[in-house]
Design a protein around this nucleic acid. Structure first.
Lengths: 140, 140
DNA sequence: TGTGATACCTGTAGTCACTATAGCTTCAAG
DNA sequence: CTTGAAGCTATAGTGACTACAGGTATCACA
């Protein structure tokens, strides 16, 4: 007794939205499911698992390209998982880079805001910093 | 003797690219400059200052809507700068939220990667975590 | 069997802040 | 006068959705 689901059901089970599931199909992240005689999509348990997998990976910030690779690699359970590891490590590096970029911004913003003693606009440290030629925040 | 600049000049002076300057004009972030008889844009020193201001604000992560407001507020030098302060603080809050979100991801990813002892895919902790129903990373 | 509510379908456009391309015109130096 | 750089417009692409318009299918209930 295979459990079959409408797209609404699959959405509830996986945590994706209905539109997002259709989007994943359109960009080839999941296979096109079979349809009813009335043209409505039907998902089996495997498809729902895939959707939950995607949802979890998205929650961890993986991009769809990385997820495509992860899904492909998960399909071969006997191979070693070095490639999966590599994808995860690459993503972790990217996350760390974004954190350090944001922390630099935080420092800069904090300094600027604290320097502003709430005077007139022309004396405002924030305006001055933004107008100054000497400013050089981190690029990229 | 007003110093006048071609778009390429203005780009070099401000740090924006030529295309980006045209884009800012299109979305109404800067005023449309006057043109030469040959239809080429001419920027005065004020316009170049505005572009540099925008560039600095973008480097600090402000969105274009916030920058539009900041530019408007900077134009009235005698008012008090409370609104400018508020925009900066709002942005700082957003930056801090993004940092804490990314830090949660970092923790989760690190835990996952360390748990993986480089075995087969079917034993891979990363695949298991992503497949697990029990996972609940932070939303939004 | 009719009716109405809900869920489903496709296709398109909008988000953000650019970036890149194609195909053209203008300008400045030699 | 020629050549190459720089300028012009208009359009499409990025990532990962989200929202809408306008239509069809399904199901519970009367």
């Amino acid at each position: 007794m295979a459990s079959l689901h409408s797209i609404g059901d699959a959405a509830k089970q996986s945590g994706c939205t209905v539109q997002t599931i259709r989007y994943y199909e359109r960009v080839g992240l999941i296979a096109s499911p079979v349809r009813t005689s009335g043209n409505q999509r039907i998902y089996d348990a495997d498809a729902v698992s895939h959707l939950a997998f995607i949802r979890h990976a998205r929650a961890l910030g993986f991009g769809l390209d990385a997820i495509r690779d992860l899904l492909g690699l998960s399909a071969t359970p006997d191979r070693d998982c070095a490639q999966i590891d590599a994808i995860a490590r690459t993503h972790l590096d990217a996350v760390r880079e974004r954190i350090s970029h944001l922390r630099a911004l935080e420092t800069e913003l904090t300094r600027m805001i604290e320097a502003c003693k709430n005077q007139t606009v022309s004396e405002c440290r924030i305006v001055q910093v933004l107008s100054d030629h000497g400013m050089c925040a981190s690029e990229h």
